[in-house]
Write a protein that binds this DNA or RNA. Sequence first.
DNA 1: GGGGTTAGGAAAGGGGCTTTATAAAGTCAG
DNA 2: CTGACTTTATAAAGCCCCTTTCCTAACCCC
Lengths: 414, 414
Amino acid sequence: MKRTSRDIRTANRYEVLRQIIAESPTSRQELAAATGLSLATVATLVGELLDLRMITEVGFEESAGGRPRGLVAVNASGGALIGVDIAETYVHVELFDLALNVLARAEEDVRPGESLPEQLVGHVAAAVGSVVTQAGIEGARVLGVGVSVPGQVDRATGISEYAPNWDWHDVPLVDLLSEYIAYPLYLDNPLRAVAVAELWFGAARGSGNAVVVTLGTGVGAGLVLGGGLHRGVSNSAGEWGHNTIVLDGRLCRCGNHGCVETYVGAPGIMLNLRELSPDSELLHPGDQTATIAALARGMRTGDPVAIEVVRHTARYLGASIAHLVNLFNPEVVVLSSWVAAALGEPLVAEVREAVARHALPRPMAATEIVLSPIPTDPACLGAATFALEGALQSVGQRSAKRTTPARTKMHDPR
Amino acid sequence: MKRTSRDIRTANRYEVLRQIIAESPTSRQELAAATGLSLATVATLVGELLDLRMITEVGFEESAGGRPRGLVAVNASGGALIGVDIAETYVHVELFDLALNVLARAEEDVRPGESLPEQLVGHVAAAVGSVVTQAGIEGARVLGVGVSVPGQVDRATGISEYAPNWDWHDVPLVDLLSEYIAYPLYLDNPLRAVAVAELWFGAARGSGNAVVVTLGTGVGAGLVLGGGLHRGVSNSAGEWGHNTIVLDGRLCRCGNHGCVETYVGAPGIMLNLRELSPDSELLHPGDQTATIAALARGMRTGDPVAIEVVRHTARYLGASIAHLVNLFNPEVVVLSSWVAAALGEPLVAEVREAVARHALPRPMAATEIVLSPIPTDPACLGAATFALEGALQSVGQRSAKRTTPARTKMHDPR
DNA sequence: GGGGTTAGGAAAGGGGCTTTATAAAGTCAG
DNA sequence: CTGACTTTATAAAGCCCCTTTCCTAACCCC
């Protein structure tokens, strides 16, 4: 709520690091040009990041008369970040270096019966332990662990307030996890994780206004407004998946009828297929992944049923995304998550057309609709990004009240 | 895009003045408590506003031991603001004092044929001249004129890029108006004007996140996010009225089918009535205002047809507002503009229920749905508020390059 | 007419960003 | 190989904010 000059600093720190990660190596000059900050400010921020060992100096640029530009790059080995994506049927954990490359990966299946928090926590703890040993990282290098869990979360307290999948109510997830995991923990939900991933590393980079549409089993929209994530008053903004798109339409697991999710989520797409062609061999009952994969193959081989199903789905998607375009007037709408990745460009092409039919021409003209360029699980990446943001946030804070102002000075390498 | 510490100052200036207007007279202490700013900051800002003659000192509070608090109040006669609401069928102009009381009012009818910019400009110029003479204000006191015109506008250049009513394309409205009007001009569209009015003086005061739903002939949603108006990348955010709520539904004037507007805008409500009871005496064909008024009367007298029509309308409205609740997770949804004002609390009650049926419980629990408390034309008030913001904006600016640094010093009253 | 108490202003301090000056590190020509 | 020119990076100073702290002003009450 309350803005202070410190927020500006934090935002600038993010911006500079983001830029370095995106384009490594780079010079201070380029950074200043890219961020619009003055050279002096960039230099101090770069200095901070160097002190933190998040970046390193890596030589100089060729010069044509004049002092050569010093180059800095992400210090990949300067730390590790862990992203945890807890979903209905699996737990994905990835360990990243600071360049956000995946160093190790672990996956645990969650069986239908296992809905107790303790069971989930066990899976997460096991997987986190696994990636750390796999990567051969010493524990101290891990800067933090981001956790994405479906439903409504309170990020400040680390409580999963409500998770529909398992009927959780006010589960103190971070407290439970901290018994097994010694690293700083950051909790949020997949919608926002995916949005942050796109904001830092994906198609929303540099956009002040973007909407990240997550298409998976559930669907939602992460809102990037004014350069930052919009969370709403109780951290539950972006629940686009449960907007009514067909009055008295299909029954949704949320209890309502005609939600967007029931038409464009993976189960909804399966239903679209079944209604269109009940005996299609594309349909793998009970297996969303296989069905979506089959549809994707069908699109490529020109299977008329697959094409028709995607077109049909795109119709609903188009109307629903048009809502977002009309309301937010974003620069870019990013289609992300596994269904979007599987169906790929052909889906996007259909969606573009469908959105154009429903949205107003003016906002539509200002909006690009693109596929996410992120190759891995964006929720994992986003969760890890929360950890990165967390590590960066604490930079500005003066350590412990006023105990050691002199001592910190002495640490100064200069 | 780029944030600077100056923006903080501007926001605080707005906040303090807003507070003073809301509660006049008040003390610095109360202001500090209400805004969360330090006493020192409040004192400087109050000093600025005193220098500008926007507020005045008006005595002291009773004291019970201790120095009495100095009271400040809006200096109503310290300036005048003019709000212009250009609509399809009329031009409303109101002249406000700085306490935002209406001092004078003028209305010009716009006949169906008169769609030329010059004609509209003539009406506006006449009405503006009229309110100034009516109020007996000397011209120098007018701080600015805000103009609300439907459609897509570019507020920086003052161009009406597109107005569907009259098929305007890139009309340089501000340039045209400035031939007749010597005061500073501010242009935007009614959606945003109404939202700003609610943000400063209405039900959205103090909310970081609010949605202002405008229900008139056309409908839309003004978005207050993070304490400020969200405009989108091309200043056309908030076009909620043209979101599709019924696939292949009623034909809308925008060319699409099933837009929200076609069900809950005034003509849409008339259609709802006609469909429900074609021969109802409530229906005044061709007269939106009369029909809505008749419905309002019917609600009060318990006319079953009126009740049913409103309930029917509320159903569509509920689903559409639920979209906003799910997406933005706002603190408050304000129903504003003339249709909302006419149908009043009974409509709101129905809407609350309908929204609750469609929105997710979590965001819904955090959201209040209320009627606008603004008694006059909110678009006029909002337009005038743009002028007020404009007048306040230029405070911080240091005048002219470096011509007269000494001279300005000499003007300093101290 | 002194305490005691509260208000308000002035000064100092801390954080940020930018502009300007200075030092550092090259290239290039003579 | 040295001096001139160019470009980069850092240091210093200036400006804009906001806050905390201190001190004076103003009032009540005894």
